[in-house]
Nucleic acid binder design. Structure first.
Lengths: 227, 227
DNA sequence: ATATAAATATGAAAATACTGATTGTTGAAG
DNA sequence: CTTCAACAATCAGTATTTTCATATTTATAT
């Protein structure tokens, strides 16, 4: 997923670039309008556009882009007037963020917009993307390989991975996954845990992710990658 | 174009409603969460959601909506913390506007979001033009041969192909294709999927494009061509 | 250390749930 | 009146979930 930042102040573009790269985006920076229009030919999935550029107005660039492209645009600017915002959104920007801004909020807005444009992708990962859980695709990636988990397996993994370190009793898992009305036997969970381990663990006999807490239940261990 | 405002303070909803109506939108107001979820069945194109409601948290409503719908959501709230904003965008909102807000800016954001949502691609193709979807002609080309899909088949294919990889539940598809008020049986989708597969798959028994996700629904798999 | 009891892991069979294909009915369009 | 698409219902074939019997591991008390 490629993002172009059009911004002349290196101080700002460096920060934004760093935050976005940490999310796995490929980022390029254009310090002025001319460079931006040149680089746009490479094809990007989103543009973050500063309105105050040395050579031309950001609004002008926005209009030029909109003549032949539908690429998502986030305007980034010190102009906080209501009029400016309305004008920015009016000429085809998708979002308008005012400086000083929070880089994390900007990233959240980038994600929301990309989700809207490309399709949802709520993903979280552990241990430098060794294990990636993608809720929208209903898939889990282990060391870059895509696994398909059954619905129950997926729910169990997703439940415990959302709270790394917290122990879940079998009863809690049965209630959450199979529902409070489930009449069966709580050792069913064991069988599912076994199957999940065979799919996600390097050595299912010495699990790294799903630990057994003797006499209590199971817990998920993993370092959540920065979001 | 129908918009639902979920807001308990009449003073605010009246203003927003007036501004939106002036733009030609059809507007309905729900004063609490329960009413909102009830009214949602009527099918709206966008929701403006206050987070502080008398009966339930707006975040909760947002999550419930996102379970079976991709409708655009703008959160409207007094909570201005960075954390709240990131969380709001994280659970599937498209935009987050802080009170006190400018009604005109809100309208501009509504327009920007609707433009983004409704402006879909006209024609796009997968796997080196093996499968070409042409929205205007309502036609699909498979390996150079033109197929004619029925209206429902086309809508289903178009919906899932616009977001390759994302799983769609039958309920989501029913809501999107047949409307929220549709009372029928969601297994109907299966029959349509079967028919689509017979038209676009080389071997409908081993589908390459439309994959079944057991216990969840269907997803479209394909490499979108660059152009 | 070792024995013992208790808890967990495993593999395979049985029970259940889900999908895909078939068929028939309904309703709308020409 | 005919045709075609949409929807509903059914059934057989699969995939998944659950159970159960057995093996293995763990905790604890000698």
């Amino acid at each position: 997923m490629k993002i172009l930042i059009v911004e002349d102040e290196a101080k700002i573009s460096d920060i934004v670039k760093a935050y976005l790269q940490r999310e796995g985006y490929t980022v390029q920076v254009a310090p002025d309008g001319e460079t931006a229009l040149e680089q746009l030919k490479d094809g990007f999935d989103l543009i973050i556009l500063d309105l105050m550029l040395p050579d031309m107005a950001g609004e002008e660039i926005c209009e030029m882009i909109r003549r032949d492209s539908d690429i998502p645009i986030i305007m980034l600017t010190a102009k906080s007037d209501e009029e400016d915002r309305i004008k920015g959104l009016g000429i085809g920007a998708d979002d308008y963020v005012v400086k000083p801004f929070s880089p994390r909020e900007l990233v959240a807005r980038v994600k929301a917009l990309i989700r809207r444009t490309k399709g949802t992708r709520r993903t979280y990962s552990f241990n430098n993307r060794d294990l990636v859980i993608d809720t929208d695709r209903h898939e889990v990636m282990k060391a870059g390989r895509t696994l398909t988990l059954t619905p129950t397996e997926f729910k169990i993994l997703n439940t415990i991975a959302e709270r790394p370190g917290q122990v879940f009793t079998r009863l809690q898992l049965v209630n959450t996954i199979l529902g409070y009305d489930f009449e069966g036997y709580d050792r069913t969970i064991d069988a599912h845990i076994k199957n999940i381990r065979h799919k996600i663990e390097d050595n299912p006999r010495k699990p790294e992710y799903i630990k057994t807490v003797y006499g209590v239940g199971y817990k998920f261990i993993g370092r959540l990658d920065e979001d």
